[in-house]
Design a protein around this nucleic acid. Structure first.
Length: 542
RNA sequence: GCCCACAUAGCUCAGCAGGAUAGAGCGACUGCCUCCUAAGCAGUAGGCCAGAGGUUCGAAUCCUCUUGUGGGCACCA
């Protein structure tokens, strides 16, 4: 049980002993020293129901509060009705051996032990290189997977793609058109064709490998394109430090009959009907505003059908938790998938759809409308080449998923050596350097250091911060968003840099040096574990 | 027109199970290396938290409306 939970419990006990009913017991860190280390606004929130002034309630609770001097030096009220705690520094000091003992496992938990999770992300169709837009998805998905793993989940990272639909057909046609273009034959480029140069490269390599006499409509055009582009996508993902455990494609569900079975089951429930030559899903019967087309009059199913079959497959695979990382453009469509699954009697409570807002790309101060088809994009590879993986990964998770992300490509390049991510890494590198220096002087601080020597306010502030790491990691699991970890690490690094300036670690005072070495070792563990979760390196030197 | 997000410093954004004086980075300005890495620290300037109502002891945070931005409302995915 951590400090806040402990105090929370004691507050509730004290409140009940005072004959009052506790209500929303929230404990926060005090911003101002004169309010102690931690505070609760409990009396304020109780005032109305208790029909007493908040200050009076505070006095009653404090009166009943079990004061353990080893933990709490002082507990006192302050207007308009807060209860403040002054924590015994020995509590904070005692964190050091705990953290050093825990090492890599500090901040991890067993919340998800024995449970499985499936995280579906990226899922870009292989029609072109991965762009900045996909990058946000990729990094979010991978980082969220890391967070789950930190809490004991066994995670399957999964990439799903549509290889049977219109997009891929047009891709094949685009390659074919380029192929005949190279052969100086008069062909018309498809209206919605993919215009990127990579299409020409693929056409060239087909010509080298398969000769110049291919007929129009030869499946090699699409197959080769898919293969080449997919290899490229996998390479880009590797560059980002991301690997997938499983790739699943749409075709599978046509081949194994899942899609037919799915449609038949809906039909048996009278949730499907024919109109205007198309097959419709009766979503209005299930409370939606409009019905949806499932099979077009051309005979081609819409993406909803295989997507739903795919989700059923994921459910059947028995995961305890299923996560989808989708762009905001899916906000309106994924509920239809869940709806159909529910209609078939499947539970979808364990599916969490995480929507992120779009990335706006700015170049020369102007918005660039990105389009894979029109070959108007900045690729992940270009970005990684320019600023490095760590900066790219950091950039994509430093903002909340619900914020539109403005990506100013010029600014990213200009400020690449002045980036917030270096602030974190620098703290880690500084620590490594000091530890090395200490070792050079024969200081190990592995045992026997005296933690009670750490009394400087900068030391206590740093200690408070590293003690909160497990809470932050638990929060990240709850909300499934990495951003709080980023903010936390920024704050931790700031506290370390302040400590670095205020308190010299290696001095003539050997006892103090050993104690401070232990402190920075604990800090290093937290920084390193946090950065690792984010997929960002923690360099030994910079 | 309808639905979903968002609106906070010059710029990019935190803060939002309601709490004590609204934060950070970048940019601007001022200081700090005889001392473990100055990729750092300290400080100054910069805000009617989009606007208007409401709930509350108390609102950047919750509710309603208005305005603006992004996304969706396809027999595209």
């Amino acid at each position: 049980m951590n400090l806040k939970e402990n105090l929370q419990k004691k507050l509730i006990e004290a409140t009940e002993k005072a004959g009052l009913i506790p209500h929303s017991v929230i404990i926060t860190s005090s911003k101002d020293e004169k309010h102690g280390d931690l505070s609760s606004s409990l009396p304020l929130s109780m005032a109305k129901a208790a029909q007493k002034p908040p200050m009076e309630i505070a006095a009653l609770i404090i009166d009943q509060f079990e004061k353990d001097k080893n933990l709490i030096l002082d507990i006192f009220p302050s207007p308009p009705g807060f209860i403040n705690f002054k924590i015994n520094p020995s509590f904070y000091q005692s964190l050091i051996p705990i953290i050093i003992d825990a090492g890599d496992s500090y901040g991890r938990s067993e919340t998800g032990k024995g449970k499985t999770a499936n995280v579906e992300f990226v899922s870009a169709n292989p029609t072109g290189p991965l762009t900045i837009g996909h990058g946000r998805n990729a990094v979010l998905g991978d980082t969220i997977s890391n967070i789950l793993e930190n809490h004991g989940y066994e995670v399957t990272r999964e990439y799903y793609f549509n290889d049977a639909g219109r997009q891929m057909r047009i891709l094949g046609q685009s390659v074919e058109a380029r192929y005949y273009e190279i052969l100086k034959q008069d062909v018309e480029f498809p209206e919605d064709g993919y215009q990127g140069n990579y299409i020409k490269d693929i056409a060239h390599s087909i010509m080298h490998e398969n000769g110049e006499n291919l007929k129009s409509g030869d499946p090699i055009f699409k197959e080769k394109a898919e293969k080449v582009i997919f290899a490229d996508i996998e390479k880009s993902l590797r560059n980002l430090g991301i690997h997938f455990d499983q790739f699943t494609n749409e075709k599978t569900f046509y081949k194994n009959g899942e899609i037919d079975r799915f449609l038949e089951e809906l039909k048996a429930k009278n949730l499907i009907y024919e109109k205007d030559g198309a097959t419709w899903f009766r979503a209005t019967d299930l409370g939606k505003e409009q019905d949806r087309v499932y099979i077009k009059s051309t005979g081609e199913p819409t993406y909803r059908v295989p997507d739903t079959a795919y989700h059923r497959d994921k459910i059947n695979r028995g995961f305890d938790l299923i996560i989808d990382i989708f762009g905001a453009d899916h906000a309106d469509t994924y509920p239809d998938v869940l709806l159909a699954l529910n209609a078939l009697g499947l539970k979808t409570d364990h599916i969490r759809v995480l929507l992120y807002q779009f990335v706006t790309l700015l170049r020369n101060g102007e918005k660039v409308k990105m389009s894979t088809r029109k070959a108007n994009y900045v690729t992940i590879d270009e970005l990684v080449d320019e600023v490095g993986v760590d900066v790219v990964r950091y950039f994509f998770i430093m903002r909340g998923m619900n914020s539109h992300l403005n990506f100013d490509i010029d600014a990213a390049a200009d400020s690449s050596d002045n980036n917030p991510v270096f602030y974190l890494q620098y703290a880690h590198a500084r620590i490594c350097n000091i530890i090395k220096r200490g070792e050079g002087l024969g200081m190990k601080s592995s045992t026997g250091y005296d933690i009670t020597l750490l009394t400087h306010s900068s030391e206590i502030e740093l200690l408070k911060s590293i003690g909160e790491f497990p809470e932050i990691m638990a929060l990240a699991l709850k909300i499934l968003e990495p951003q709080d970890i980023v903010n936390y690490l920024q704050d931790l690094a700031a506290r370390f840099h302040r400590f670095y300036v205020d308190c010299r670690v290696i001095t003539d005072d050997e006892n103090l040096s050993e104690a401070r070495l232990a402190l920075i070792k604990a800090t290093k563990i937290v920084l390193s574990n946090g950065l690792k979760t984010l997929g960002i390196t923690a360099p030994e030197r910079m």
